[in-house]
């Protein structure tokens, strides 16, 4: 028990003192995860819309495939991207391996199905009268889509938050494609794994607390925003 309390106290001290090593790791994590979430949202939300509203053969298959990809293991994505960006891979010449860009590519692939699936679900649940109302008062396709986005904004925000939560907490892709290089590709999760291997629990616990704090802050912001809008 003392061991746990000592670890926790040391971790809190590290956070309180704004330890530069800790800050750097948190910053890399936030930067990489935010970028991948942004890119995945820009792709996944419109894709979700197109799939939800589009009538095409194979629609059910696409939705089933996306649902299956929700359970995609991070190491599988890491391995897949690795085969493309390693020196012998098709994109080997771009020198992407062990860079933040490589992590972002892997994370984008990981969370596009999450954003798209949640968007499909939110849009499909929306009463069709919103679409018809927008059309009958004279909206064009883009204005109608905007009306729908506004109505399902909480569903889409939930999709983006879920995606962000998935990437900020993942370790497989960051480790395999980022290489855990200190000050460069070391994220909170890869640092925690390393510190655990070294038997140094203080930083590991401090990073765990930081990870939870980030997740908590994002959710608090979302609920505050949701509450303000619904008032």
């Amino acid at each position: 028990m003392d061991f746990l309390i000592d670890g926790l106290l040391s971790a809190l001290l590290l956070i309180w003192s704004l330890d530069p090593g800790l800050i750097e790791i948190v910053w890399v994590s936030l930067k990489v995860s935010s970028t991948s979430t942004l890119i995945a949202s820009l792709v996944g939300v419109p894709a979700g819309f197109l799939i939800a509203f589009g009538e095409f053969s194979g629609k059910r298959f696409v939705i089933t495939l996306l649902n299956t990809l929700l359970a995609l293991p991070t190491v599988a994505v890491g391995l897949l991207v690795y085969t493309f960006i390693c020196r012998r891979g098709i994109f080997g010449g771009f020198d992407l391996l062990y860079t933040q860009k490589a992590i972002i590519i892997g994370q984008v692939i990981l969370i596009i199905p999450i954003v798209a699936t949640f968007t499909i679900s939110a849009v499909s649940r929306l009463d069709d009268r919103y679409r018809k109302t927008a059309l009958t008062v004279g909206a064009n396709a883009i204005q109608t889509a905007w009306v729908i986005v506004r109505e399902v904004r909480f569903g889409i925000a939930a999709a983006i938050i879920a995606a962000f939560g998935r990437v900020i907490a993942e370790v497989g892709i960051s480790m395999m494609l980022g290489g855990n290089a200190k000050g460069f590709t070391r994220t909170m999760t890869t640092a925690m794994a390393l510190e655990y291997d070294k038997g140094l629990f203080e930083l590991s616990v401090a990073l765990g607390i930081a990870l939870l704090a980030v997740s908590f802050a994002v959710n608090v912001f979302f609920h505050y925003f949701q509450g303000r809008v619904r008032e």
Binding site: R129, K132, L135, E151, V229
Partner: peptide, 16 residues
């Protein structure tokens, strides 16, 4: 559509 408008049964208003 800009010359004709439909008011549906149990109309829906946008969330604003």
């Amino acid at each position: 559509r800009r010359r004709v408008v439909l008011v549906q049964q149990d109309s829906i208003l946008f969330s604003t």
